[in-house]
Design a protein around this nucleic acid. Sequence first.
DNA 1: GTCTATAGAGTGATAGAC
DNA 2: GTCTATCACTCTATAGAC
Lengths: 193, 193
Amino acid sequence: MKIIKERADVIPALTEVFRTYGYEGASLALIGRHTGLGKGSLYHFFPGGKEEMAVAVLDGIDGWFHAHVFEPLRSDADPVHAIEAMFAATDHYFRSGERVCIVGVFALGDVRDRFAKRINAYFTVWRDALADALRGLGKDDAVARDAAENIVAGIQGALVAARALDDPALFGRRLAAMKVAVLPARTSVPEGF
Amino acid sequence: MKIIKERADVIPALTEVFRTYGYEGASLALIGRHTGLGKGSLYHFFPGGKEEMAVAVLDGIDGWFHAHVFEPLRSDADPVHAIEAMFAATDHYFRSGERVCIVGVFALGDVRDRFAKRINAYFTVWRDALADALRGLGKDDAVARDAAENIVAGIQGALVAARALDDPALFGRRLAAMKVAVLPARTSVPEGF
DNA sequence: GTCTATAGAGTGATAGAC
DNA sequence: GTCTATCACTCTATAGAC
């Protein structure tokens, strides 16, 4: 018995191909190999071809970040918890620096213009949601905006540097440094006191 | 009369093509158009084809940064001046956020492995030279190393974010923030005192 | 019969190597 | 310019679920 796939089942594999090879590098042959699907199936699910596949991938990523990062940042009653959760989710999503950000990769290439709206939205929403949470911490508007921009950019830079230096642990170090810079230090009370 | 070009004359145009389109996206047709050279000439100058062209581009960039950034950081008697010059040269090189870093772009793609040595060297030398200068400022070793890693990664992140948000000025903001975080604040003495 | 998923031959254009 | 390989994509054909 054959399990019939649907469009959504293909997106994870699609995502990994675009992440690994970029937009131009992700050939249909490669996509076919990684999804186990022929061209017929691929064009059945994505009549718009490669561009529609990339859109589905970007939307999938955006959906994940909305659910696990952006919404909690905006609506969590405890901003400290929301920001800690953001760093944890980010570390998890990027596999502690082993994975690269497709949105960042697309932003650097000439395909940026083709997907500009989605790329811009991903970073804008992230930055603004984080600034919200930072204001919830009592920071004033300008400081919160600046810190949010710094962190969102810093995450991308940490991914680039981790790949460039072939040192995934660099990613965790930068995340930790940004976290302590922005969150009130934990008051650790030694036992017995 | 036609001025016969030499290999070095082609490299700036080559650099812009790779910067704009990435390694895969830089087709020989595109390269030919931008350099004004036919495939024959290109293979005459670069018998190793596209890969050798990319190596020449990376080496050219590395040479520029050695001369204008890395060496001053290591040997300038005044580390404050060297670090300020680094930020100024970086802002100039990346055209205040309008330009992207080819080394960073390559680092994120699957071509990273092919050029791993050069990519790694570029970032390693920059980070270590900057750490040197920061130690010259009196910072202790661990602090200097951490700050250097933070800045080198932060520059890449600022380039990604500036492109993604289509806001080149973001690059200057992040450079300025990193500079004041690491350099003793200018003691500005109001006139009359 | 109809709908959805699949397979893959075949299109012209273009790739990089030489 | 010439080569072969591969590109994104189109098209026809077919299988099984309802």
